[in-house]
Design a binder for these strands. Structure first.
Lengths: 153, 153
DNA sequence: TCGGTAAAATGAATAAAATTCGTCCAGAAA
DNA sequence: TTTCTGGACGAATTTTATTCATTTTACCGA
């Protein structure tokens, strides 16, 4: 699927995605055109899903996070949850709780409103909310260190 | 803090962070140099925290997600949790559960090992694990639509 | 071992973008 | 009104992106 050079490129992009391709080429010691070709193929294969800017949520009145256990079944509920803009994540989990939802809102008032919305969704039997006091770690980085050794995948 | 043009720029970058600055300038109808200056200031002010590539976790043997409620107190536990590479998120939550941890591993075997590690951490009284069957939504995008009206912030 | 073949890397050439900087304009302050 | 300040502009220059013909590399079968 990919080799060590691809991994190296991905590591660089994972750190700073908006650096010029020529700089990536310099760091991996290859011609820019070759690196460009590799990145394109990684994109085509769906290994690279996209590039995004990481914003400081606190700057946008989005400082309050919460997790909600939604006891419900059925994909309809999941879809309805996913449509709420404050909802950042919806995971179907094993067990009676059904879905685990991650929220991000401005304040407690907004949180209360969103929780009301969720409770009112069809199929929702009960919810249990956990408000986040402090986020100690929050990354989405994929661990690439394991992939350095093997050539193919 | 920022105006509508900044919001517009951030919306564009949130969609596709690796597009050329000249293209951003075209879309917002300004000179590339002015857009560059704005982006720099957004970075300096910490509004833009960085740029990252979004990888497909399934391509890196990271297809299994789980949430773990770690009943514990003390920042030491949080720090220890954060150091585990499989741990993607550590949130201190209100209530007896202490910390909510998000994991990403290759398979059930690795998950079991990591859970053992967490259980063995000093100060951890009990853990409760929820394995993710399916992720319906997973985004980190900040909702910028609310910020279109007001000039200052 | 020896071609033969396909995928990938190179490097040159050109188009495009990034970056710098002097200048200008508008609004705030004196 | 005058001065000051912060952006925006646009020209000039450096750097990159992108394409493509050529070369290299790796692998396979005879």
């Amino acid at each position: 699927m990919f080799d060590e050079i691809d991994i190296h490129i991905l590591e660089i992009l994972q750190e700073k995605a908006r650096i010029p391709n020529a700089e990536v080429a310099r760091q991996v010691g290859m011609a820019p055109s070759a690196v460009l070709e590799r990145i394109r193929k990684l994109e085509e294969r769906g290994i690279i899903e996209g590039y995004e800017v990481r914003l400081n949520p606190a700057c946008f009145h989005q400082g309050l996070s919460a997790f909600v256990q939604v006891e419900s079944d059925g994909a309809a509920t999941a879809r309805a949850l996913a449509e709420i803009t404050s909802v950042q994540e919806v995971h179907q989990v094993v067990g009676p709780d059904g879905f685990l939802v991650k929220l991000r809102t401005a304040d407690h008032t907004t949180l209360a409103r969103i929780l009301g919305e969720i409770r009112a969704l069809e199929g929702v039997r009960s919810i249990r909310t956990q408000v986040v006091l402090e986020t100690v770690k929050e990354t989405r980085r994929v661990d690439l260190t394991e992939h350095n050794g093997n050539g193919r995948h």
